[in-house]
Amino acid sequence: MTPRDQHPGSAGSTASATTQPLRSDAERNRARIIAAARTVFGRDGLGASMASVAREAGVGIATMFRRFPSKEELVAAVFADRMDAYVQATAEALADPEPWRGFTGYIETVCAMQAADRGFADVLTMSLPGAEALEACRAEAYQRFLELIARAKDSGDLREDFTSRDLVLLLMANAGVLSATGDDAPDAWRRLVAWMIQSFRAPARGALPDPPEDAALYQAMRRASLGIASPETGSGR
């Protein structure tokens, strides 16, 4: 807190006059940081440092950490609306009367969301336990995706050996393609997704290796997030 000059007997009026601008300044800084983080994470992914976000926002690193003590908290604030859209996509897919179209439409929508925002591509392939609201959205979307799988299998369109873990693997693969191709081949991901959707369709054209265990896949997602969750001094991850 910055010391304030007060006239005797005027403490109440002075506090009222000075506190509100401080709240307004804090809110402006918070909004500026979130807007800057959208730009930086969307361009560079979640590996971008908090210092680079602070520079983009035009605030000091101390101000950054006052508003967002951890990177996970910043990530949660930046991607809250996108995670809401992610959940909404599952609801819209379940509302489609044709199970296969709902299933494939959802996959295409989510992969397109990854392509539109490199930072969000990272979010979808990481587990961020410190971002509770974000993880709650992920869990809700996951449960709805299980329903999409069941419907598509019941209709005979989805091969029986498909599991929810196959979506995680696809999102990881898509994130890798997006990172590698960048601006040079911006639509390359579409071919990958189209190939994968065709491979998901029944009848199966051959046996597959067993999918990774849930615990192993979670650890992979958690490990991917460790670099962005650790405290920073402004020099990178």
Rank of each mutant, 00 (worst) to 15 (best):
L22M: 12
T18R: 14
A175F: 02
G234C: 06
D210A: 15
G234K: 06
A224P: 02
R223D: 15
D157W: 11
E108I: 04
V193C: 07
E92F: 04
E72H: 10
L124G: 08
F162A: 04
A93M: 06
F65Q: 10
L128P: 01
L46R: 06
L192E: 05
E92W: 03
A76D: 15
A85P: 04
E132T: 13
Q6H: 15
A77D: 07
D81N: 04
S179N: 09
L94S: 08
A89L: 04
D81K: 08
Q20F: 11
V123P: 04
S164D: 14
T181G: 01
T163A: 08
L208Y: 12
F68V: 00
W100T: 02
S10P: 00
D25V: 07
P69R: 03
A93Q: 05
V40Y: 08
A175V: 02
G45N: 12
E72S: 13
Q198K: 11
F41C: 00
P69W: 05
E160A: 15
E160P: 00
F79V: 00
R43M: 01
R223H: 13
A220C: 06
L94F: 11
A204F: 05
V168K: 08
D96P: 04
P186D: 07
D184A: 13
D187S: 10
P69D: 03
P129M: 07
V53G: 07
Q219H: 14
L169Q: 12
A185H: 12
G58K: 08
T2D: 09
D184F: 08
M83N: 12
E98M: 05
G227I: 07
A17R: 15
G119Y: 11
R144G: 15
A207S: 14
S164E: 14
A11D: 13
A175N: 11
L167P: 01
I33V: 12
A216L: 12
S199F: 09
A139N: 13
E160Y: 05
T18L: 11
A89I: 06
L134Y: 09
T90M: 03
H7R: 13
E108A: 14
S179G: 10
G42E: 07
